[in-house]
Amino acid sequence: MQLTFASYNMHKGVGVDGRFDPDRIISVLRELNADVIALQEADRRFGERESILPKALLDETPWRAAPVNKRARSLGWHGNALLVRRDIEVVDAQALHLPTLEPRGAVRADLLVEGQRIRVLGAHLDLSGLLRRDQIKAMLHHCGHCETPCPTVMMGDFNQWGRTKGVLREFTDGWQTPSIGNSFPSRRPIAPLDRIVYSSEWACENTHVHHSALAAVASDHLPVRATLRILPKN
Rank of each mutant, 00 (worst) to 15 (best):
residue 37 I to Y: 07
residue 101 L to V: 12
residue 227 T to C: 12
residue 161 W to M: 01
residue 12 K to V: 10
residue 200 S to F: 13
residue 143 C to T: 10
residue 10 M to S: 10
residue 202 W to D: 13
residue 17 D to S: 08
residue 154 M to K: 06
residue 122 G to H: 10
residue 107 V to L: 11
residue 4 T to V: 10
residue 75 L to V: 00
residue 100 T to E: 08
residue 94 Q to S: 15
residue 185 P to G: 11
residue 41 E to N: 05
residue 45 R to A: 13
residue 143 C to S: 01
residue 181 G to F: 10
residue 199 S to M: 11
residue 145 H to E: 15
residue 74 S to I: 07
residue 212 S to L: 03
residue 147 E to I: 02
residue 219 S to A: 04
residue 149 P to D: 14
residue 160 Q to G: 06
residue 2 Q to H: 08
residue 16 V to A: 10
residue 209 V to S: 13
residue 201 E to P: 00
residue 162 G to S: 15
residue 16 V to E: 09
residue 214 L to R: 13
residue 5 F to G: 06
residue 156 G to P: 04
residue 65 A to D: 04
residue 79 G to K: 01
residue 41 E to S: 06
residue 62 P to T: 05
residue 43 D to N: 07
residue 48 E to M: 11
residue 174 G to V: 10
residue 8 Y to F: 15
residue 91 V to E: 14
residue 188 R to F: 14
residue 149 P to W: 09
residue 107 V to F: 09
residue 4 T to N: 06
residue 24 R to N: 06
residue 64 R to S: 07
residue 174 G to W: 12
residue 90 V to Q: 12
residue 111 L to P: 04
residue 70 K to V: 15
residue 103 P to T: 06
residue 18 G to K: 03
residue 51 S to T: 15
residue 198 Y to C: 14
residue 28 V to D: 05
residue 34 A to D: 03
residue 113 V to G: 03
residue 99 P to Y: 07
residue 22 P to F: 14
residue 54 P to F: 05
residue 191 A to Q: 05
residue 68 V to G: 07
residue 74 S to T: 00
residue 137 K to S: 12
residue 227 T to D: 01
residue 155 M to N: 04
residue 151 P to I: 14
residue 125 L to S: 05
residue 193 L to P: 00
residue 96 L to P: 11
residue 132 R to H: 12
residue 166 G to V: 11
residue 162 G to I: 01
residue 141 H to V: 02
residue 153 V to E: 08
residue 109 A to F: 09
residue 102 E to W: 07
residue 197 V to P: 05
residue 203 A to N: 08
residue 21 D to R: 07
residue 43 D to F: 10
residue 162 G to V: 09
residue 60 E to Y: 02
residue 72 A to R: 10
residue 139 M to D: 01
residue 36 V to D: 09
residue 71 R to Q: 09
residue 143 C to D: 11
residue 46 F to A: 03
residue 167 V to Q: 13
residue 78 H to W: 05
residue 88 I to P: 00
residue 159 N to Q: 11
residue 91 V to Y: 10
residue 173 D to W: 04
residue 129 G to D: 13
residue 192 P to V: 05
residue 16 V to R: 09
residue 203 A to H: 06
residue 94 Q to N: 13
residue 190 I to P: 02
residue 102 E to C: 04
residue 75 L to Q: 03
residue 71 R to L: 15
residue 107 V to M: 10
residue 99 P to R: 00
residue 12 K to P: 07
residue 51 S to Q: 01
residue 135 Q to S: 11
residue 9 N to F: 12
residue 148 T to C: 07
residue 81 A to T: 12
residue 115 G to I: 13
residue 3 L to R: 08
residue 219 S to C: 00
residue 79 G to F: 12
